[in-house]
Design a protein around this nucleic acid. Structure first.
Length: 651
RNA sequence: GGGGUCGUAGCUCAGUCGGUUAGAGUGCCAGCCUGUCACGCUGGAAGUCGCGGGUUCGAGUCCCGUCGGCCCCGCCA
């Protein structure tokens, strides 16, 4: 069965032709002696029409039974419309139905299949994802994503890169995110891990001499989710030999120019750069949103003689504690209500600040929570230092670098939105460079790699490694777009000795390094070239390019914040047989799995099974797991609802 | 692990101080309708107020627990 035309392609030039169309009935309008059907296919929408007074009774009967989302095969003639619809690309014409076959019917969709003002709740959208995906917005997003991947492949091919696939079943490594594990049947008790990224493989491919590698690959991290984080996500993975940071940044910057122009944005190379230190100092974030300029300023010295003890103490702390300020000029910020300021203060407290001192110039002049301690001239001088006069608002934070950055950085983002300082059409890319090598982890009481353990230290900081790890910079860089980290990379260590030194510093013993990364250390000692690379988050890029607020909008079948797939109900319990095959069950115990409406046991007879199933159904609700103890005759001894542990064992 | 927020008709939501028969829009079903395109008009059906327990003469509403969606902190080299 073939269509003669795509619905969206039809226009005035086809008038008079007989066409064969296929698609879904988007909407049926029955006016009595006149019926209209909007027929949707992948390429567009066209209006079908029929005059019920002139068509055959059979066709009339079929037409009357058509409902939304029925799948239709239609033969008809293209005609000019009596009343054209300018809103519609095919609005000049319509197709007069000669014959219509219903290829399949459809239940009434549980969610609207069109983009409307009030979309269905996300739970239902995910449950019926295949219907949600019929919507124009999601189709467009997935198309954009597809176009992006094509352009990306094109870019790397043009630059002499080879695309190589790396294993999905791989080795669990310490450091980094929690792994998703896959038990090995052949080697009971042993596990593969799904890759958090192909990091080590791409480095080994450099050792192999491929020099320029890329891959668009799925990565897995078993960590808690966010609007821009899914347990599985797609990375554009890149690695090159004999290059420096500039080479990679140039390659990727040019890619960003091409991608941006795909969605009508013009950006220029070189993409601006900022060091990690400056990003933290001026924007309070390692992924600053540069769509608006408002910077954080150090105003500690203004309070050297202040009556306000908290601030004066900071001024006297010799840099241990600082007073930092974030200013917003203009009447919107200057005339913030008490209530709005309270809300900001609440946010600040949430971020760990004791409060949120402010100075504000509004219609009624100066007002400030520091009024007792600060004169109008002093306030004016601070405003001058921040580069504005007239109406406006200054928010203050006191504390360590980290504390004040955290508070003011977050408030900067909040206020940027609230004061509408952000032009949503702007793409503000920035490279953040010179990340620190290590940060102290309180929990494990050791230094951990900020990027990853294979990152090369900055050559100027090599002597600092052992003595002042916190001061040591890495040859690591992030690509940031509109306040989102869309990529990160580094120059790698290509010396076996230096790599061992870093492992030691990270508290990874020689024995452990050998066990976990022996293959890498070995490979590095066989003529590994200098190398470096980057990984770009394809989902986040697609999200930002599509103008969406969540990566779920650019992923065909995403998972919920609790890492479930509501459509397939994965993850799910598996057959006991599978578990025993994998060596995950102890054989000498009977393990009964009990849930809402079922339980299983290899030992139980069908009769016992039925009897127990009935008892379990009586005792547990449909949405909980039950833990039930019973004796050999199936008498229930004890039953309660549990949250975790689907398994229940007894001797 | 923690915090916030939501859960009422197929869908999106309203529901006052705890009070009689739980509403609206939309969708659905039926009838009418010759230029609709979010068709219109008339009528109709449609509810485990997420689930469980408690308080009360009485619970959609108050309390406790629990399940689920979303957002955030921790976490995410």
């Amino acid at each position: 069965m073939q269509r003669s035309h795509r619905n969206g392609d039809l226009s005035r030039v086809h008038v008079g032709e007989t066409v064969h169309l296929l698609g879904w009935a988007r909407r049926v309008r029955n006016l009595g002696s006149l019926i209209f059907i909007d027929l949707r296919d992948r390429w567009g929408l066209v209006q079908l029409t029929a005059d019920t007074t002139t068509i055959s009774p059979e066709l009339l009967h079929t037409l009357k039974s058509v409902r939304s989302e029925f799948v239709l095969s239609v033969q008809g003639t293209v005609e000019l419309r009596k009343s054209p619809n300018q809103e519609m690309p095919t609005g000049d014409i319509e197709v007069r139905i000669l014959d219509l076959k219903i290829l399949n019917s459809s239940l009434t969709p549980p969610i609207p299949v069109e983009d409307g003002e009030e979309p269905a709740g996300e739970e239902l959208r995910l449950r019926y994802r295949y219907l949600d995906l019929r919507k124009n917005s999601l189709q467009k997003n997935l198309w954009l994503r597809s176009e992006m991947t094509h352009l990306i492949r094109d870019h790397f091919r043009q630059n002499d890169f080879i695309e190589v696939e790396t294993p999905i079943l791989t080795k669990s490594t310490p450091e980094g995110a929690r792994d998703y594990l896959v038990p090995s049947r052949v080697h009971a008790g042993e596990f593969f891990a799904l890759p958090q990224s192909p990091q080590l493989f791409k480095q080994l491919l450099q050792v192999s001499g491929f020099e320029r590698y890329f891959q668009i690959c799925r990565c897995f991290r078993d960590e808690d989710l966010r609007a821009d984080r899914q347990p599985e996500f797609t990375q554009v993975d890149v690695e090159m030999s004999f290059i420096n940071q500039d080479d990679i940044q140039d390659l990727i910057s040019r890619l960003m120019v091409r991608l941006s122009s795909m969605v009508g944005r013009t950006i220029h190379t070189p993409i601006p750069q900022i060091t990690y230190r400056d990003a933290m100092e001026f924007y309070g974030s390692d992924k600053p949103d540069l769509r608006f300029e408002n910077r954080i300023f150090d105003v500690t010295h203004f309070f050297a003689h202040s009556e306000f003890k908290l601030f004066r103490n900071a001024a006297e702390s010799q840099g241990q504690r600082r007073v930092r300020a974030l200013g917003f000029s203009g009447p919107v910020a200057g005339n913030l209500s008490r209530k709005q300021l309270d809300r900001l203060e609440e946010q600040a407290k949430h971020l760990g600040a004791g409060g949120l001192p402010y100075i504000k110039w509004g219609k009624e002049g100066l007002s400030s929570s520091l009024k007792k301690f600060i004169s109008e001239e002093e306030a004016g001088e601070i405003a001058k230092a921040l580069g504005f006069s007239g109406e406006g608002l200054i928010l203050l934070a006191v504390g360590t670098d980290t504390q004040t950055s955290r508070v003011l950085g977050e408030l900067r983002n909040l206020c940027g939105q609230q004061f509408e300082l952000i032009d949503p059409s702007v793409f503000a890319f920035v490279w953040v460079t010179e990340f620190p090598m290590f940060e102290w982890n309180e929990e494990s009481h050791r230094w951990v790699a900020v990027h990853h353990p294979f990152t090369s230290p900055h050559p100027d900081d090599l002597e600092l490694l052992e003595d002042r790890p916190s001061a040591c910079r890495a040859l690591a860089y992030d690509l940031v777009l509109n306040g989102f980290e869309i990529g990160g990379g580094s120059i790698r260590i290509h010396s076996s000795e230096l790599q061992s030194r870093i492992f030691r510093l990270l508290g990874i013993s020689a024995a452990e390094a050998q066990e976990k990364f022996g293959f890498l250390l070995e490979a590095l000692s066989y003529g590994a070239p200098p190398m470096g690379g980057i990984a770009l988050g394809l989902d986040r890029m697609a999200m930002l390019f599509a103008g969406e607020a969540s990566i779920r909008e650019v992923i065909a079948f995403p998972k919920t914040a609790q890492a479930r797939c509501l459509m397939t109900s994965a993850p799910s319990f598996v057959d006991l047989r599978q578990l025993t095959d994998l060596g995950l069950l102890k054989e000498n115990k009977q393990t009964y799995r009990v849930g809402a409406v079922f339980f299983e046991s290899e030992a139980s007879s069908p009769a016992l099974r039925r009897a127990l199933g009935k008892r379990i159904q009586e005792m547990t609700s449909t949405q909980t797991q039950g833990l039930i103890s019973f004796d050999s005759k199936g008498q229930v001894i004890d039953a309660r609802t549990i949250q975790e542990g689907p398994f229940f064992e007894f001797e």
